[in-house]
C-alpha cells in the first residue's frame, strides 16, 4: 500500500528506539545504563523528528528540523557529560563516606560496628578531623538512599 520511503523507515526505527529505551530506562537499576538509555531515547526522538518532517515534504531534505536536531544533539551531549560528572561525584562521595565509616568503626568496639555502618552520616559528622565537604558527602550515603534514590 505504501511504497518504501527512507524517511518513513527511519522514523519508524526512531519510534521503536524510543519504546525500547523507555523499557530499558525504567527497568535498569544502574545509573550509567539509565544514562545510555536516555541518550538512545533522544536519538530516537531526533530520528522521528527529521524522518517525519521529511516524509511530509516528500523526501526533500528539510533544513529546519535538521538544524533543531543539531541543537538537540549538542544539548544532549552536554547533558550527558553533566550527568557523568554527577555520577562520578556521587560514587566518590559514597567511597569517601564508606571509608570514613569504616575507619571510625575500626577504632571503636566490635559492638558498635553495626551502628557505625547504619549511622555513618551522623558519626562522621561529629568527627572534627573530617572536613565540611566530607560531612555533606557522608549524608549522601545514608543506606536508605540506596533504596529510595536508586531504582526510580
Amino acid at each position: 500500500m505504501i511504497s518504501f520511503s527512507v524517511d518513513f523507515w527511519y522514523a519508524g526505527i526512531g519510534a521503536a528506539l524510543i519504546a525500547l529505551s523507555l523499557l530499558a530506562f525504567l527497568l535498569s537499576k544502574r545509573l550509567l545504563k539509565k544514562l545510555l538509555a536516555f541518550n538512545i531515547m533522544g536519538s530516537g526522538v531526533f530520528l522521528m523528528m527529521v524522518g517525519m518532517a521529511q516524509t511530509q515534504n516528500d523526501g526533500a531534505a528539510d533544513a529546519v528540523p535538521q538544524a533543531l536536531v543539531l541543537t538537540g544533539i549538542v544539548v544532549a551531549v552536554s547533558a550527558t557529560a553533566l550527568a557523568l560528572v554527577v555520577i562520578r561525584r556521587f560514587a566518590l562521595a559514597s567511597v569517601v563516606a564508606a571509608l570514613a565509616a569504616e575507619n571510625k568503626a575500626a577504632e571503636n568496639d566490635a559492638a558498635e560496628n553495626d551502628a557505625a555502618e547504619k549511622n555513618g552520616a551522623e558519626r562522621t559528622g561529629s568527627d572534627t578531623a573530617v572536613s565540611d565537604t566530607t560531612v555533606t558527602d557522608t549524608a549522601l550515603t545514608d543506606p536508605n538512599l540506596n533504596k529510595n534514590g536508586d531504582p526510580q
Binding site: 544502574r30 550509567l32 562520578r88 560514587a91 566518590l92 567511597v95 563516606a97 540506596n146
Partner: peptide, 25 residues
C-alpha cells in the same frame, strides 16, 4: 567507567552496605 571501577578496586574492603551502593554503579 574506569574511574568508577578504579574506585571500587581501591575500596575493596568496604562494609557490605557501601559495597552494594558502589555496585549500583
Amino acid at each position: 567507567l574506569s574511574v568508577l571501577r578504579a574506585k571500587k578496586t581501591a575500596a575493596g574492603k568496604l562494609p557490605p552496605v557501601d559495597q552494594q551502593l558502589l555496585n549500583t554503579f
